[in-house]
């Protein structure tokens, strides 16, 4: 159990590591190039794993509805947007806002699909997330000005 917990934390670390690596590549090239490399390298890697382990086409791979195969184009936009955001607002803010966006849109999709859920927990969860975003934004307008001080560039 503890081993699985460590693996789950590691999975989260790898999500952020991937974003950091793609952000670094986009500094040299562009956000679109970094998303291209993410997909091509990931495709090559998964193909090798598929050949080594097998079972890639297990089950009924072509049995899903057509739109289910369109996750890739959304993923392309997602990686490009993440690479852009991490350079603009930093890794922690990017992770925080992506988590907030994922959680709130997840509740909306669940409700739109008529999935059963605990309404009061949904309200509480969304309210906490919105409060967090509000706290993060609330500093935007207040510029700290202290009389008699100047802003000097670091030597």
């Amino acid at each position: 159990m503890l081993g699985y917990a460590a693996l789950a934390v590691l999975a989260g670390v790898l999500v952020s590591l991937s974003r950091q690596l793609n952000g670094s590549l986009s500094m040299f090239t562009s956000a679109l190039h970094s998303s291209f490399w993410n997909h091509v390298v990931g495709f090559a890697f998964l193909t090798v794993i598929g050949i080594a382990i097998g079972g890639l086409f297990a089950g009924d791979p072509w049995g899903a509805p057509w739109w289910a195969y369109l996750g890739g184009p959304i993923g392309f936009i997602f990686i490009a947007a993440s690479s852009w955001a991490i350079l603009k607002i930093g890794a922690a803010q990017t992770a925080m806002l992506i988590i907030a966006g994922q959680m709130i849109s997840g509740v909306i999709v669940d409700m739109a699909l008529g999935m059963a859920g605990n309404t009061s927990a949904r309200i509480a969860g969304v309210a906490l997330i919105l409060a967090g975003m509000l706290v993060s934004r609330s500093g935007a307008k207040t510029k700290t000005t202290i009389p008699g001080t100047t802003i000097v560039p670091k030597k």
Binding site: F78, A85, I98, A100, G101, R137
Partner: peptide, 17 residues
Amino acid sequence: FIGAFVTGGLLTLMVWF
């Protein structure tokens, strides 16, 4: 700020698809 938040929404679509 809004851009990063909307990006998180894309993740929900990816997980779904």
